[in-house]
Amino acid sequence: MFKALFFKEWLKIRWAGLIMLGLFFLAAAKTALNISYGIRILGANNFWGEIILKNIPFFNDYLYLPVLTGIVIGIAQFFPEVTESRLKLTLHLPLKENNILLYMAFIGASAVLLISAISLFVMGLISLTYFPSEVLWAMVSTSLPWVLAGLTGYFGTIAVFVEPIWFKRIFFIVVFISFIQALLEPSHLNFFQHSLPQFTIVTLLFSIAILFSGHRFRKGVLK
């Protein structure tokens, strides 16, 4: 049954996922070009200096991509569900309603993570070509909060879609955007080095937000 559910989610998100992956690859190509250009113009040592001494991430094109991925995947997955209340069909499937929602969220979140991981891997390869391993680890630790922002964006989007009440939706948008802002604003190398576990835990608090909204969806609350 979960396999079938996976099949349904896959049908919805595959194009969105591929497009996002494509964007990631474009960004990777742009980054690689920028690096190679920078090295040609400044010389490798000066270019290293820009990154290592000035703490500037060379992969800043990635900053908003995970969030965008989260939101796009969330929309691709839940827009078809809430238009014409199709979610009623889904919740009518012979599984526990909460399990259905959680499993859907799990699939979407995995897609966001997978896309982020693939692109991080590609970025990592680019990084290792031009830079020492220190830069690679700094890149990973710098971009993990961006991935967390992507997850938050995803969990937020799907909860907002399922939530039947506009006021709660808007307030929830405010809540998750302020957290995303906290994750994305300080976009310098390693700023989250000591606090990734804390920020991960808070991100995970968003993960089951859909259940409360889903509950009200089922109860037909209109207030």
Partner: peptide, 22 residues
């Protein structure tokens, strides 16, 4: 139970973000 927990998590998030924003 999970729904309750979901709401409690949302409340914690509201508290955190309000404690930043307000």
């Amino acid at each position: 139970m999970m729904v309750k927990l979901s709401r409690i998590f949302i409340l914690i998030l509201v508290v955190l973000m309000a404690a930043v924003t307000l």
